[in-house]
Lab assay of single mutants.
Amino acid sequence: RNRTTFTSYQLEELEKVFQKTHYPDVYAREQLAMRTDLTEARVQVWFQNRRAKWRK
């Protein structure tokens, strides 16, 4: 699989949710996936990576 390149809009939306919660539930991830036109799996992985970056 190729690396996903996120648009500025997608990143904005993802970051907005990340500010509210670092662990969005499956419903929140589904909503976000629909809004950003990404798969729920991509959203889930983005949050995993974002949490790792945040911990550093």
Rank of each mutant, 00 (worst) to 15 (best):
F18P: 01
E40H: 10
R3I: 14
W46L: 01
R51C: 04
R42I: 15
R50T: 05
F6D: 04
Y23E: 07
Q10I: 03
R50G: 02
L11A: 10
K56E: 08
V26K: 05
R55W: 07
T39Q: 05
D25S: 12
W46Y: 03
R51H: 01
Y9S: 14
M34N: 08
H22G: 04
M34L: 12
F18L: 03
Y23N: 13
K56T: 06
A28I: 06
V26A: 15
Q48K: 14
D37Q: 09
L11H: 09
D37H: 11
E12Y: 04
R29G: 01
D25V: 03
W46R: 01
F18E: 01
A52H: 04
Q44S: 13
Q10T: 03
F47M: 09
F18K: 01
R35K: 08
T21S: 11
T36G: 02
L38A: 05
D25Q: 03
F47K: 02
S8R: 13
V45E: 14
R55C: 11
R35L: 06
Q48H: 14
V45T: 13
F6W: 10
S8N: 09
A41N: 09
R3W: 12
H22V: 06
R3H: 08
V26P: 08
R1Q: 06
T5G: 14
R55N: 14
W46G: 01
D37C: 09
K20P: 01
S8G: 12
R35G: 04
A52S: 08
A41D: 11
A28Q: 10
N2A: 06
T39I: 03
T36H: 06
K16N: 05
H22L: 05
Q19S: 10
E12Q: 08
L32W: 00
A33D: 02
E12F: 01
N2Y: 10
L32H: 03
Q31K: 12
L32S: 01
K16V: 04
Y9E: 11
P24Q: 00
L14P: 01
R50M: 05
T39A: 07
A28P: 00
F6E: 06
V17I: 11
L11Y: 10
R1W: 06
E12L: 04
R35P: 02
T39P: 05
Q10E: 05
K16I: 09
V17S: 11
E40I: 06
E40A: 09
W54Q: 12
E13T: 07
A33Y: 04
L38G: 02
F18C: 00
Q19K: 13
R51I: 08
T36C: 09
H22M: 15
P24M: 02
N49H: 14
K16S: 08
V26Y: 10
V17T: 12
E13V: 05
R51A: 01
T21C: 11
Q48D: 15
N2E: 15
V43C: 10
L38D: 00
W46N: 02
E40F: 08
L38I: 15
M34S: 12
Y23I: 02
E15P: 00
Q48S: 12
Y23G: 03
Y23A: 05
T5K: 10
V45N: 13
L32F: 03
Q31Y: 07
Q48G: 10
S8Y: 07
Q44T: 12
L11E: 15
E13N: 06
F47R: 00
F18W: 09
T39H: 07
Q44L: 12
Y27W: 10
Q31T: 08
K20I: 08
V17N: 04
Q10M: 03
F6L: 11
L32P: 00
V45D: 15
L14D: 01
V43A: 02
W54V: 08
K56F: 06
D25A: 04
T39K: 02
R35A: 09
R50E: 10
W46P: 00
Y9I: 15
A52D: 08
S8T: 14
R3P: 13
R50F: 00
M34I: 09
R42D: 15
V43L: 07
S8F: 08
Y9W: 07
D25M: 04
T7N: 09
F18D: 00
R1A: 11
E13S: 05
K53R: 11
N2G: 11
K16H: 06
R29D: 00
S8D: 11
P24C: 00
E30T: 15
W54A: 13
A52L: 07
A41G: 09
W54R: 10
Q10W: 01
L11S: 08
F6N: 04
P24N: 00
R51L: 05
K20Y: 04
L11M: 09
T39L: 03
P24S: 00
R35W: 06
R55L: 14
K20Q: 14
V45Q: 10
R42G: 13
F47Q: 00
